[in-house]
């Protein structure tokens, strides 16, 4: 269970989260929605301990991570697998080395074993043919897939975190990524997906959180989201009309 207990966070003088109270189970499929700069990505960074809240506590399985030092956070971070916006692949390394990055550091696998494991993971996300390409040679969709593959290299996490996984992708590629996200959570592992694309969120998530001015404006299921009267959310719902209903 992830618990935000009265969390506030500011970037300089700009407050992005205000007294946020939130609980998410590791099995839940959550979409965090909201406009740009509303603190969606900040939530993911707070969960991983990459930034510390100004106020409040964050508990991961009952463990308060807010006071933990960098070296103590490794075990917490290993529970998650994150795919950052636009993939965040290491651009000096090819696809194989990106996926093998942790394998080389944390395992004593031979070169053959690493090659075989990398091919297996890349195959599972459908980009085995890109193994020797450099990140700049990948399309947006392949970039995200390789990033997902890299996050799976060390094993299966308890929960996936996706930061705008479909942003900048054409509808076909976005659809493929949504399908991959849904497939990866079939065995009961949940995810938190940060997105501003309601249509994509509706394809994969069961619970929807809408952020506005640093607070939770909505927290509920798809039915509640689609029938809410809140004008800020209605504006987002309109987007579905333009892009086509995804569910």
């Amino acid at each position: 269970m992830i618990v935000f207990d009265g969390v506030s966070f500011s970037y300089g003088s700009r407050r992005v989260l205000r007294d946020v109270h939130l609980s998410v189970g590791f099995h839940e499929r959550v979409a965090v929605l909201g406009g740009s700069g509303e603190g969606k990505t900040t939530i993911l960074r707070l969960i991983l301990g990459l930034i510390k809240p100004d106020e409040g506590r964050i508990l991961i399985e009952g463990d308060d991570i807010t006071a933990k030092r960098e070296e103590e956070l490794r075990d917490v971070r290993m529970k998650f697998s994150i795919v950052f916006q636009e993939g965040a692949l290491f651009d000096s390394l090819d696809v194989k080395e990106n996926v093998a990055y942790c394998l080389r550091e944390y395992t004593s696998m031979s070169e053959e074993e690493i090659d075989s494991r990398v091919r297996e993971i890349l195959g599972s996300v459908g980009v085995e043919q890109a193994i020797h390409l450099m990140p700049e040679e990948l399309s947006g969709g392949m970039h995200r897939r390789v990033s997902i593959a890299r996050s799976l290299a060390l094993g299966t996490p308890k929960m996936f975190l996706y930061d705008e996984p479909t942003t900048g992708l054409d509808p076909v590629n976005a659809d493929n990524i949504c399908r991959l996200i849904a497939d990866l959570s079939k065995d009961g592992r949940g995810f938190i997906m940060v997105t501003h694309k309601v249509s994509d969120a509706l394809k994969v998530a069961d619970r929807f959180i809408f952020l506005k001015d640093g607070s939770l404006l909505f927290d509920g299921d798809s039915r509640g989201l689609l029938h809410t009267d809140a004008p800020e959310i209605r504006m987002f719902i309109e987007e579905i009309g333009h892009q086509g209903q995804g569910c």
Binding site: R45, L48, L50, E70, E71, R74, R77, M78, F80, I82, F84, Q85, E86, A88, L89, F90, D91, Y101, C102, E105, Y106, D163
Partner: peptide, 14 residues
């Protein structure tokens, strides 16, 4: 800016 440093931290490296 490309979140690669964050990725390094998430992977458990300093």
């Amino acid at each position: 800016l490309g979140h690669q440093v964050d990725t390094i931290r998430v992977f458990g490296f300093d």
